[in-house]
Design a protein around this nucleic acid. Structure first.
Lengths: 191, 191
DNA sequence: AAATAAAACTAATCACATTAGTTTTTTATT
DNA sequence: AATAAAAAACTAATGTGATTAGTTTTATTT
């Protein structure tokens, strides 16, 4: 197949993920990544177009992992229970993969097709669960935005150290989800 | 007073805000900022320690503006109405000052004292409003985390172009706040 | 008029991204 | 077995940006 074997995109991506999760997304540079792979940075360009392209790949990879984790988490569940599960899966992902999570947030261009698709898959998953809760159409679409805002906001703030007080994070998150789900009826009423 | 008049911290900050809001936070560099002020980048170090310090200042400034906007928005209001108002004020700020808002999220060190204080002032404001809703103690603290997650999550996603669908953003946000407020009772019940 | 302090400047260094052009190595072909 | 082709690695070079060191300029104060 290959006239010469070297780093391939998978190994590059995996090294980038490790770097991102251990050092933070900003420390993932063409230089640091090349060093981790024991090659020189120009060699990376044989595999990926540049740093923005790498970050885009990281973001896609992150969204795929998020989607997979959510699917796993809500398997066999329905309705509010399922929503609670996918929400927890999201923050769990952000904790396990802080750098990769950051990458999903700070993608270079949110309109990039493959990235968008990965995001849409998450939306579709949540949409399916909301359907079980009796939400369809525009109401459901608004509700997905709500769910995404909740989980993304909480995970981001937690990650950035925004929650300073000595108060169990787990409880804060569960209560937030509970409050939202308790009030989810407004999506039917007000539309 | 001053042996020689040049750029002062206020003018530097204001130039940085303009740059951030018009070009994005990443385009605020010591180089671009100096160019905007018609000086050379090393001269900036007479006024600020470096790029991280500048970003920290921007973040503090942003939080102060957010707090001021919230105070203004909820003046004379109480309870849920007031919470709705401060939430709207937050997203309004993020729309008017996308770069400054980004700065508040991506501060170099969330533990920096002055930054923390600015953040705490926002927390205290919301805490005061929640008190009107009958929430105190740990319940109120959890609820503030909830409110912050909501507004920060929504504003971030909106700013990053995360809401692709053609669905009015205003409605999505109002519904989200409504749902949360409708379910806010769980903070009393479950604690 | 001289001293001082603050601000600006130039010059230099270092890190990183990226491009161009060359060499190496493996596979496939003759 | 020798060689042609492909893919990957390399070196060298450029450009941008942050930052430091050391120098010059200029307004204020003595």
């Amino acid at each position: 197949m290959s006239p010469r074997i070297g780093a391939d995109l998978a190994s590059i991506l995996s090294a980038a993920v490790e770097l991102a999760d251990s050092q933070g997304l900003d420390e993932v540079t063409m230089a640091s990544l090349a060093a981790k792979l024991n090659i020189r940075s120009p060699s990376l360009y044989n595999h990926i177009a540049g740093l923005p392209a790498l970050r885009n790949r990281l973001a896609i990879h992150g969204l795929e992992e998020i989607c997979a984790g959510m699917e796993r988490a809500c398997a066999g569940q329905r309705g509010k229970e399922a929503i609670r599960s996918v929400a927890r899966a999201y923050v769990a992902f952000a904790r396990e993969h802080p750098g990769l999570h950051e990458a999903t947030i700070r993608a270079p261009d949110p309109r990039e097709p493959e990235l968008r698709q990965a995001g849409e898959r998450v939306v579709e998953l949540v949409l399916r669960l909301l359907d079980d809760c009796g939400l369809t159409g525009a109401a459901a679409l608004h509700a997905v935005r709500g769910v995404r805002s909740l989980i993304h906001g909480f995970a981001s703030l937690e990650q950035k150290g925004g929650f300073a007080l000595a108060l169990p994070l787990e409880d804060s998150f569960d209560l937030l989800i509970d409050a939202f789900l308790a009030g989810i009826g407004v999506y039917e009423l007000k539309l």
